[in-house]
Simulated scan of single mutants.
Amino acid sequence: MTVLIAIPARYASTRYPGKPLVELNGPDGPKTLIRRSWEAAMAVGGVDRVVVATDDDRIAGHARAFGAEVVMTSTTCQNGTERCAEVAAQLPGFDIVVNLQGDAPLTPSWFVEDLVSGLRANPAAEIATPVLRCEGAMLAKLLEDRRNGRVGGTTAVFDAARRGLYFSKEVIPHTARPYADDEPTPVFHHVGVYAYRPAVLAAYPSWPVGPLETLEGLEQLRFLENGRPVLCVEVQSKGHEFWELNNPSDVPVIESMMSRRG
């Protein structure tokens, strides 16, 4: 099966305008968010092509300067999945299209590799996404964000067959008791990566935006609202910290994690 990774990147983010071009300082010096996300994509094994998908000339020019292939998409895309659908229409013939969102430079390569393997192993599944069981320290970060009114990571709940029941920017399921930093919890952090089969990706932009997607601002809820199960593939951290850049306050958090990772 041939695999395409598309990295959606837009300049006009509501919460963080210009986010893809924000520089993150790491052990290898300062690099922009979109460059670090592209490098994370290039490290994934078993991938046939990697492209940056954007509607912004500034992002496109910068990406081409560091060696990325760029696919220009329309300004009407409402989210990364719609942008990936446009990429798949321009670059047909791939069996699986991966949406590696441009705000997750700490995504380990095996998250994506395991995701693709999970979709391949489930022929009936049309969409898959990774979930990571939170330990106490990660759960504490998520809860702190919500207490301070920040939109932080997304959480997921799923059934016994690993089909997503719901995704939320609130911390679900509710759990009242405290956990030690390294103690497993019942909360799963949703990792913002998706693997799609081309047919369902092509259909997605034609579906209306439903009330849940509108309320949560989560693109994957459009699949659930249209009766398309989302396979949740559990991935392992293997000691690596994971966080997404959602707000300016996340920059020092990610820089600190990169420094510890080395």
Rank of each mutant, 00 (worst) to 15 (best):
V116W: 08
V116D: 09
S117D: 13
S117V: 07
S117Q: 13
L119Y: 08
L119V: 12
R120H: 11
R120Y: 10
A121N: 11
N122D: 15
N122I: 04
N122W: 11
A124D: 10
A125D: 01
A125E: 00
A125M: 04
A125C: 02
E126K: 14
I127L: 12
A128F: 01
A128K: 00
T129D: 03
P130D: 05
P130N: 06
P130M: 05
P130K: 07
V131Q: 00
V131K: 04
L132H: 01
L132T: 02
C134R: 02
E135S: 11
G136Y: 03
A137V: 02
M138I: 08
M138G: 08
M138P: 02
M138R: 11
M138D: 07
M138A: 13
L139H: 00
A140R: 09
K141T: 04
K141N: 08
K141S: 08
L142E: 02
L143P: 06
E144P: 09
E144V: 06
E144A: 14
E144Y: 09
D145R: 03
R146E: 03
R146T: 03
R147S: 13
N148S: 11
G149K: 10
R150M: 10
V151K: 12
G152W: 00
G152Q: 01
G152S: 05
G153L: 13
G153V: 06
A156Y: 07
V157I: 10
V157G: 03
F158W: 03
F158H: 01
D159V: 02
D159W: 03
D159R: 06
A160Q: 09
A160M: 05
A160E: 09
A160R: 09
A161P: 04
A161L: 06
R162A: 07
R162Y: 06
G164N: 10
G164P: 06
G164K: 08
Y166C: 07
Y166N: 08
F167T: 08
F167V: 13
S168H: 01
K169C: 13
K169T: 10
E170C: 11
E170W: 08
V171H: 04
V171A: 07
T175C: 14
T175S: 15
A176Q: 13
A176W: 15
R177M: 09
P178T: 03
A180K: 14
A180M: 15
A180V: 13
D182I: 05
D182N: 10
D182F: 10
D182Q: 08
E183D: 00
